[in-house]
Design a protein around this nucleic acid. Structure first.
Length: 364
DNA sequence: TCTGGGGTCCTAGGACCC
DNA sequence: TCTGGGGTCCTAGGACCC
């Protein structure tokens, strides 16, 4: 058996800085330097809705993603408030991803403003990777006008945490031999997949930092958080992550949610919303030439609890009528079972089937 | 005029089949 | 006779991410 060391992987993660707000700054140079707040208005009138993201000037004033718009206006009365313009962000995102893709052995877009890039084989070592990252950042800046933060590490976990380590316009490289020292002082919630709930439970167990996770055995973690999460937390704490950079195969589900004009359990109002949402979902489905095998009705009550009701069809469908009718049926059953006031409702299709598979199925 | 909208992944229980 | 046991699909819900 040859006992040479396995060649370390070199993974880059890129994260666009305060992306939506930065896109708006690019389009409207006159707002640069001011606090900028990107909002999702609920449609209930006034400032009902939440902040999607904000630039650093606004963040300094306490305006962060998720807070209600009216509170943001109190914190930053002189800020520029803009509604989300997804089409603009998608277009700019495409420009960025195009540039990045050119440098990767393998590429994985994670969201509209994040991506992984496999550099293994493209550069010989981490120092060369750093130089390449500088070049990529410059090219993105020059071609799109936007800044981003980049992390480089021996796996996706480390690369992603590294890209978050220094922002905006940051570049953090973590070599394999530095991984444990890098992770040890970080908060447990810096691990992807460890959020508020698990973070709190770990804190209760006396674990605040990633380094302190070593106090708990893999068995204890699995008992506490289940097989998958327990294993993930243990591995992550040791800097281990074997997941691969791979192109996403396409979406698993397509859904649309809306806030109702008023809280209600009246089927008439809910059906109207379902019809509009179904059309949007159907449009996206058509654009991607997909069929679906299951339909869900999503109900969010006034206490913001989310419940779903779903149905799998005997055979795949792709027409609007099936979405609308199934969602309506599910909504009717839902209201019978849970007669609560709803604040938001949604329609989702899943078990999506692409054109190729549809043809295969058609042969039988 | 509290708290938007688009996703992914995992778990658990029941149905059903062999 | 003590109701085995494994696999897969479906539904519902939770946690998390951006």
């Amino acid at each position: 058996m040859p006992d040479e060391k396995p060649h370390p992987r070199i993974i880059l993660h890129i994260d666009m800085d305060y992306f939506f707000a930065q896109c708006e700054e690019r389009e409207r140079p006159e707002i640069k330097g001011k606090p900028v707040v990107i909002c999702v208005y609920s449609g209930r009138g006034g400032d009902s809705g939440a902040v999607s993201t904000s630039n650093y000037e606004a963040r300094k004033l306490g305006v962060k993603a998720g807070i209600p718009i009216y509170r943001a206006k109190k914190l930053a009365p002189d800020a520029v408030f803009l509604p989300v313009n997804m089409e603009l962000y998608r277009n700019i995102s495409d420009e960025v991803m195009e540039i990045l893709r050119g440098y990767c052995a393998r590429f994985e877009q994670e969201s509209v403003d994040e991506a992984f890039c496999e550099l293994t084989g493209k550069v010989p070592d981490f120092d060369e990777a750093r130089s390449l990252a500088v070049k990529i950042k410059e090219e993105i800046k020059q071609k799109t006008g936007l800044t981003c933060s980049v992390g480089i590490g021996p796996n996706k976990l480390i690369a992603k945490i590294a890209s978050d380590y220094q922002k905006p316009d940051g570049l953090t490289v973590v070599k394999p031999e530095e991984v444990l020292k890098f992770l040890a002082p970080l908060k447990v919630t810096d691990i992807i997949g460890v959020g508020k709930k698990i973070g709190e439970r770990l804190n209760e167990l006396g674990v605040k930092t990633i380094g302190e996770i070593s106090k708990l055995s893999r068995e204890e973690l699995i008992r506490e958080f289940g097989q998958a999460k327990g294993t993930l937390i243990k591995q992550a704490s040791q800097g281990i992550d074997d997941s691969q950079v791979e192109e996403r195969e396409g979406t698993e589900q397509i859904g649309r949610i809306t806030t109702l004009k008023e809280n209600t359990k009246e089927l008439g109002i809910i059906f109207d919303a379902i019809d509009r949402l179904s059309e949007d979902v159907h449009r996206k489905l058509e654009a991607r030439r997909l069929s679906f095998r299951s339909v869900s009705f999503i109900a969010i009550s006034t206490d913001l609890k989310t419940r779903t009701k779903s149905r799998t069809l005997a055979s795949p469908a792709k027409d609007l009528g099936t979405i609308r009718l199934t969602a309506r049926e599910l909504a009717r059953e839902f209201i019978t079972e849970h007669p609560v006031l709803l604040r938001r409702v949604g329609v989702r299709v899943a078990n999506l089937i692409g054109e190729k598979e549809q043809r295969t199925l058609g042969e039988f």
